[in-house]
């Protein structure tokens, strides 16, 4: 029971990060492997703002999210936008190049010691015989709320609907007068903001380090595979599923093999249902 609840809490954070990646990957078709770096940048900036500038946690989180959005927009317009007509693997290579540079710079600035932002929520409560820290509940609640808000943004606003049109057929969407460049900016800004929220909130509960970026990206990709690329809301279920699988694998195989179980689970899903477990739409590639 305790492990399952741990998994659910962890899973909602995965889902939040993955929801941001769905926007970027689904709408503008950029394999943004530097998405995890946005999470890292936000976590480190939040921690720096709170410990060095002595800002309150909420303001520190705002600093983190702003840094993350700035980072995402910078990559969008300095790297990906000029390459929009290049083959997909060139974009993939450039995002990995960005990962290498960002991680090296981050280690040079902040070293690679994990750190926690002080001043998060403390105390805990009990469900049955499981003890849940309040901070985890806050983490899960914020994640779920932000994912819900993003899902509404995509389904209810003009910008969201035009982004869906771009995801369906970028060329036709452009012919119909949809502002492609603006939607790129929105997708990257909102997507990186979600990563930023995840990074700053996570840093108040668990230690974050400068080297976590790629692992975070991999987890987000696994969630997207489980959930299918079609929908922001489905991502929540994909994230929770990943968290639970990880927790169960951790208890069943205590001596390693935890990563293998997660990857193996993903591979089985991918081979058996190439559109994801919850994906109803047909994948286009």
């Amino acid at each position: 029971m305790q492990e399952l609840l741990n998994g659910v809490a962890q899973g909602t954070v995965y889902a939040l990060i993955a929801a941001g990646l769905v926007l970027i990957f689904g709408v503008v078709r950029v394999p943004h492997f530097a998405h995890g770096e946005s999470v890292m940048v936000s976590g480190m900036m939040t921690c720096w703002a709170v410990t060095s500038l002595h800002l309150p946690v909420l303001l520190g989180a705002a600093v983190g999210v702003a840094a993350s959005v700035g980072y995402g927009l910078f990559l969008c317009f300095a790297v990906y936008w000029p390459m929009r007509n290049h083959p997909e693997w060139n974009l993939l290579a450039s995002s990995l190049g960005a990962v290498v540079i960002t991680q090296t710079a981050a280690i040079a600035i902040w070293t690679s010691t994990p750190r926690v932002t002080p001043g998060g929520v403390s105390g805990s409560f009990e469900i049955g015989d499981a003890i849940i820290p309040w901070s985890w509940a806050v983490l899960a609640a914020i994640s779920a709320a932000v994912i819900g808000a993003t899902a509404l943004l995509v389904s209810r606003t003009t910008a969201g609907v035009s982004m869906k049109a771009m995801a369906a057929d970028a060329e036709t969407a452009q012919l119909m007068g949809i502002p492609v460049r603006k939607n790129w900016a929105i997708a990257f800004a909102v997507g990186s903001a979600l990563a930023g929220v995840a990074g700053s909130v996570y840093s108040t509960v668990f230690p974050v380090s400068t080297t976590l970026g790629l692992d975070v990206t991999f987890s987000a990709l696994v969630v997207i595979i489980l959930a299918g690329i079609g929908s922001v809301a489905h991502v929540l279920w994909g994230g929770v599923l990943l968290g639970v699988v990880e927790a169960v694998a951790g208890t069943v195989f205590p001596g390693g093999y935890q990563d293998s179980m997660v990857f193996l689970f993903m591979l089985v899903v991918l081979v058996a249902r190439p559109n994801g477990l919850f994906g109803l739409e047909r994948a286009r590639d």
Binding site: F25, F218, F263
Partner: peptide, 14 residues
Amino acid sequence: SLYFAISTLALNGI
């Protein structure tokens, strides 16, 4: 395409 890339990435992790 990218699904293949990710599944081979997972294979490397395993």
